[in-house]
């Protein structure tokens, strides 16, 4: 059982200027979805952006988290999306 709040804290701690919104979609502690923004994403393709988020979660991504649906955005994209 893993908590959405823990994912949020780990991702925000690892990435600069980061905001993460994490939901436990199935309410099962295994299947999550997240929207993440960070200045570290600027200039990176989606694969590299997602890899940064996965890296922030380290071994939890293999062990505890069955699925993490991800949408990554640069701060500019985030501003547009949430305007």
């Amino acid at each position: 059982m893993f908590q959405a709040e823990r994912i949020r804290a780990m991702v925000e701690a690892a990435l600069p200027d980061c905001r993460a919104e994490v939901l436990d979609d199935a309410n099962d502690g295994e299947h999550f979805s997240a929207r993440v923004t960070s200045s570290a994403f600027v200039g990176l393709n989606r694969v590299r952006q997602h890899q940064l988020v996965y890296a922030a979660l380290g071994d939890h991504m293999r062990r505890d988290i069955h699925a993490l649906q991800l949408k990554t955005m640069t701060p500019d994209e985030w501003a547009k999306e949430t305007r």
């Binding site: 989606r46 694969v47 997602h50 890899q51 996965y54 991504m61 293999r62 699925a67 993490l68 649906q69 991800l70 949408k71």
Partner: peptide, 22 residues
Amino acid sequence: WPTIPQLYVDREFVGGSDIMME
């Protein structure tokens, strides 16, 4: 990349299902 599915096109890793959908 820690999850399945994974798509490869022309030898390059393209992404998982979220990136494919986007």
